[in-house]
Write a protein that binds this DNA or RNA. Structure first.
Length: 971
RNA sequence: GCCCUGAUGGUGGAAUGGUAGACACGAGGGACUUAAAAUCCCUUGGCCAUAACGGCUGUACGGGUUCGAGUCCCGUUCUGGGCACCA
């Protein structure tokens, strides 16, 4: 009976077996070392998986399988990030509950994933939208609500400790992360009523309700976090975003700025992601200086990183949103200031980002420079941001380009402070040079305690240090570290998200008792905001949610006869994805997020695989969330993800046909005139003078690379059925192509199911890895897949003879066999460790060819070989493993260990295809001369085998390493 | 503007400072076949040359270090990504 590589049968068989045997089920095992592999869980979209999705899953699956073969207890779970906007919008459109469509999509995803043969432990699956999961999202939120951050210890602590401190000492003597600096005494605190105390505590809680400027997106009807706004428009949908002051739930992520920054040094992430996060956190060390407003007792604080330029200040600027604006504005300037504020408010965030023209207005007031004693005008201008530093700056036009532009526009003086700096055309922003004019003359520097500041002759860096010292010593200000990182806005005005476990008792936000969690998402009839503008949850029959929630309400309101309103906001997308890796450790626990035992065993994720687009979103929030849980003792490691690999995107080939405007005529691309439109920055196409529009056509309608399959095109959509097709002279219709992100709307999606159908999952897995470095984005190109398929067929034949019988035997392997095998072991092991799977694939191909030529039959070679390929092509490996007589699965085999001795024994490396060239590799003393090396190699018995009857026509010696002999038969 | 990546054949991409272009795709040629498919073999960076041997050149560009540079250093030009009136 001939035994072909029948992948369909093999894959079906092993999927079933793995299921029956629970091959991938994992439990805590103290005897074994743990290894935690994790993929960023997918959002189950209606479009299903395309070939880009599995790229990361395959890479991590290879690693997980490899680690398992090395004897580790590997946790490799999968789940779904099930809350999201598309499901909600689908619900609004169709009226179908988002849960229904989400679960359908999940089923479809699961079906597709199962075909590819992953080693996921599906018993641990999580879905963020199920109550038993979001129970712990709500719980964590409540814990954050009940915590504050101690700056000194850099740690979260229970809010009760802070309250106790307030009761005894007020704000004195405790440095705590807060929204704004507050000062009050114990007497004041104790005199306040519950509402006032609650409001004050919001200033300190890690999850708090704050009146903040938020990114409001009218079209989506919700607020957005900073990372959800890209170029001034919403990331989803691309709608305009405006700034609006609203009361929202926030997470005090900024409290953890320094720890988030420091932690980056302890994890193995790519430099680019670390850099992105560093930028996002945006630490800057500077100085705060107190400025008093002339002829008043108003004082304000400015922040600068260039304390050395105090002598060059010629004006001050306040952000338009600053509370000081109102205070300092003089009666004479009031009207102009009001008008300017009105103008600023009318501008959207996007306009402000794109348009950098200089605007501003004089407030009428003057500030006193404490160093020089100069009176400098105070301006109000939108180039100063309220949210950063103190919302007020000192302007040094000579050494800051923005200040320079402003000074030139308003005719303000420019005082250069660096030797040789030419500021006639532009400012000198560089932090290099020798300071001068600081002060210009002795009387230009104010004396404090008998000391005046003089920076002349110092380098800029020295001058900054000296000014900091001076300012601190004489109490004019303080050294201060600022972070760009903002607190995360945590509420959304949507339906399809986690409900907040919060109700309002006499207007005070109050947590629903912990033992009543989870608060379930109520049913609503409509998924849109209510008529009164409340979020969609306002449509719910308030207290008629379900039995559990009635219990919640009963219990929460036990002392009251009134019914209190419950929070109508829901949590944002990142809520459910922030701690899911902990839940996988113990997914069915209904007593805790994760048990002490499971958390202690699994610790944190060793290898995390996902896209780099989450650098400033999920990957920041998750780190924050984990650090908080670490402070609570729940999470056992400060950092959640030890190593991170960012897989690139697989792009699709978009194909275009060209329809002549206003007709049903489609013209071949090569018959068109292409003109570049400068204004629109794109190409325009013309056919006999009439413009033709490019129209997406499905990739399935493309044949021979760039031709349209007219029959398929007509059949694809009804509107093309009667199309008039204009082909070129050869009778072909040429399409135009572009490489773009895979998307349903671009009709360029390649579905992994089709590949599995045609070539099998093993070929798909191998090919996706072969496509190129894992971290790189690359277009999908089916052309190369045949090569991988051919390889697998060839690999298969190593194990079977022509009659289809298993051909391996117990013979002793030759030196060449062992060398080929161990070369492969070394290469594949190193590649997997380094995540450069793409270079392992060729190594397999070479080894297969070599062993095939050597007619290797020894099971001492073929068995380890099957183990080596198991992480990549598990189905083939299992089948071969079984064929060789094993009763256990290949998953329980042992990863072969490379042994140097096999390389030495067979020193002569014989190219498979002998092109008159032999290469010898030996290690020599560094001092060995080329001649000595040559002599040693030619004299070696291994070489003699190849040199017999041959004549050496050329010798190439590379010192220390390689000897090449070009030989030909002696005539 | 600042920060981070990268630049190698027709294509994807290999090369601990040591034969540049592994492996694959594509292309060309051949074998088998009535034919097709499948399979197998050969050639394939460029230029020059040949009956044959061969020679020169070559990793974005310009320098440098080294016995030796795709790799290390300096400068330049582009590609991709991040941040951006952040003081």
């Amino acid at each position: 009976m001939a035994r072909d590589y029948n992948f369909q049968e093999i894959e079906r068989k092993w999927h079933q077996k793995w299921n029956e045997l629970h091959t991938y089920k994992v439990t805590e095992d103290e005897e074994k070392k743990k290894f935690y592999v994790l993929n960023m869980f997918p959002y189950p979209s209606g479009a299903g998986l395309h070939v880009g999705h599995p790229l990361g899953y395959i890479a991590s699956d290879i690693y997980a399988r490899y680690k398992r073969l090395q004897g580790f207890n590997v946790l490799n779970p999968m789940g779904y990030d099930a809350y999201g906007l598309p499901a909600e919008q689908h619900a609004i459109k169709t009226g179908q509950h988002p849960e229904i469509s989400t679960f359908q999509n999940i089923d479809h995803y699961r079906e597709q994933l199962d075909k590819i043969g992953f080693s996921f432990d599906w018993d641990r699956e999580v879905r963020t939208c199920t109550p038993d999961y979001y129970h712990w999202t709500q719980w964590a939120f409540q814990k954050m609500f009940g915590s504050f951050f101690c700056n000194k210890e850099q740690k979260a602590k229970p809010i009760e400790a802070l309250v106790a401190h307030f009761e005894k000492e007020g704000t004195a003597g405790w440095d705590v992360a807060c929204t704004e600096e507050m000062q009050f005494t114990a007497e004041e605190w104790n005199s306040w009523d519950e509402k006032k105390q609650s409001d004050v505590l919001m200033n300190y809680r890690l999850a708090f309700m704050g009146e903040t400027m938020v990114n409001w997106c009218p079209q989506l009807g919700t607020v957005l976090a900073n990372d959800e706004v890209v170029n001034g428009v919403s990331e989803r949908g691309g709608y305009p975003v405006e700034q609006k002051k609203m009361r929202q739930w926030c997470l005090r992520v900024s409290a953890y700025s320094q720890r988030l920054l420091d932690g980056l040094d302890t994890i193995q992430w790519s430099d680019s992601i670390k850099e992105t996060q560093k930028n996002w956190i945006g630490r800057s060390e500077g100085t705060e200086v107190e400025i008093s407003v002339a002829d008043s007792d108003i004082r304000f604080t400015i922040f600068t990183t260039r304390a050395d330029t105090m002598f060059g200040v010629t004006f001050f600027v306040l952000a338009p949103e600053s509370e000081l604006v109102d205070q300092v504005t003089t009666a004479g300037q009031r009207a102009q200031v009001d008008e300017y504020i009105k103008y600023v408010k009318s501008r959207t965030e996007r306009e402000r980002m794109i348009d950098h023209t200089v605007t501003g207005v004089f407030s009428g007031a003057y500030g006193i420079n404490p160093i020089t004693g100069d009176r400098c005008p105070i301006y109000i201008a939108e180039y100063v941001l309220a949210g950063y530093g103190t919302g007020a700056i000192m302007a040094v036009p000579a050494h800051d380009s923005r200040d320079y532009a402003f000074a030139r526009h308003f005719g303000l003086p420019v005082i250069p402070l660096v030797e040789g700096a030419d500021v006639s055309e532009e400012s000198y922003d560089a932090k290099e040079g020798i300071v001068t004019n600081s002060p210009v003359s002795k009387d230009k520097s104010v004396e404090y305690d008998g000391e005046t500041l003089c920076l002349n002759g110092l380098s800029i860096k020295e001058a900054i240090r000296e000014t900091k010292r001076f300012v601190s010593a004489h109490n004019l200000g303080r050294v201060k570290v600022n972070y760009r990182l903002r607190d995360a806005i945590f509420s959304r005005q949507r339906y399809w998200g986690e409900p907040f476990p919060v109700y309002y008792r006499h207007g005070i936000p109050t947590m629903i008792p912990e033992d009543c969690l989870p608060v379930k998402l109520p049913e609503v009839e409509k998924f849109l905001p209510t008529a009164t503008g409340e979020p969609p949850l306002g449509n719910a029959q308030m207290w008629a949610w379900d039995e559990v929630n009635r219990k919640v309400v009963d219990k929460a309101l036990i002392d009251d006869s009134t019914v209190f309103p419950i929070e109508l906001y829901t949590m944002p997308g990142f809520a459910g994805s922030s701690a899911y890796y902990l839940r996988y450790m113990d997914p069915k626990n209904d007593k805790a997020l994760v048990s002490e035992k499971a958390a202690s065993y699994w610790q944190n994720v060793d290898l995390y695989v996902g896209g780099s687009e989450h650098a400033t979103g999920h990957l920041i929030y998750s780190r924050f969330w984990n650090k908080f849980l670490f402070d609570l003792g729940i999470s056992k490691k400060e950092e959640p993800f030890q190593k991170l690999i960012n897989q690139g995107m697989i792009q699709g080939w978009s194909s275009f046909v060209f329809r002549v405007k206003g007709t049903q005529t489609y013209v071949s691309y090569d018959l068109l005139d292409v003109q570049y439109d400068d204004a629109a920055k794109k190409n325009r196409f013309f056919y006999q003078g009439t413009e033709a529009d490019p129209i997406y056509t499905d990739i399935s309608t493309v044949k021979n690379g760039n031709q349209l399959d007219v029959d398929k095109f007509r059949a694809w959509m009804p509107e093309f059925k009667e199309a008039r097709i204009v082909t070129n002279e050869a009778g072909h219709y040429i399409i135009s192509q572009a490489i773009e992100k895979m998307s349903k709307s671009k009709y360029n999606v390649v579905n992994p199911d089709d590949i599995c159908e045609r070539y099998g999952a093993d070929t798909l897995r191998l090919y996706e890895m072969f496509l190129g470095p894992i971290e790189q984005s690359k277009p999908w190109d089916v052309a190369g897949i045949d090569g991988c398929f051919r390889f697998l067929k060839k690999f298969w034949t190593l194990y079977f003879d022509k009659e289809g019988n298993v051909s391996c035997d117990d013979s002793e392997p030759t030196a060449d066999n062992m060398k080929s095998l161990h070369k492969l072991i070394r290469k594949v092991t190193a590649d997997i460790e380094a995540f450069s799977y793409n270079t392992s694939v060729p190594a397999f191909m070479v080894a297969t060819t070599e062993l095939s030529q050597q007619k290797c039959r020894s099971r001492k070679v073929l068995e380890p070989l099957a183990v080596l390929i198991a992480p990549f092509c598990p189905h083939v490996a299992e089948e071969l493993w079984e064929a060789m007589g094993h009763t256990t699965t290949v998953c329980d085999a042992t990863w072969p260990v490379f042994e140097e001795k096999y390389m030495v024994e067979s020193m002569v490396k014989m190219p498979v295809q002998f092109n008159g060239k032999v290469r010898f590799t030996m290690t020599f003393e560094a001092s060995a001369t080329p001649d000595a090396i040559l002599e040693a190699v030619i004299g070696a018995p291994e070489a003699a085998r190849y040199l017999e009857g041959m004549e050496v026509v050329k010798k190439i010696v590379v010192p220390g390493r390689i000897v090449n002999l070009v030989i030909k038969p002696k005539n």
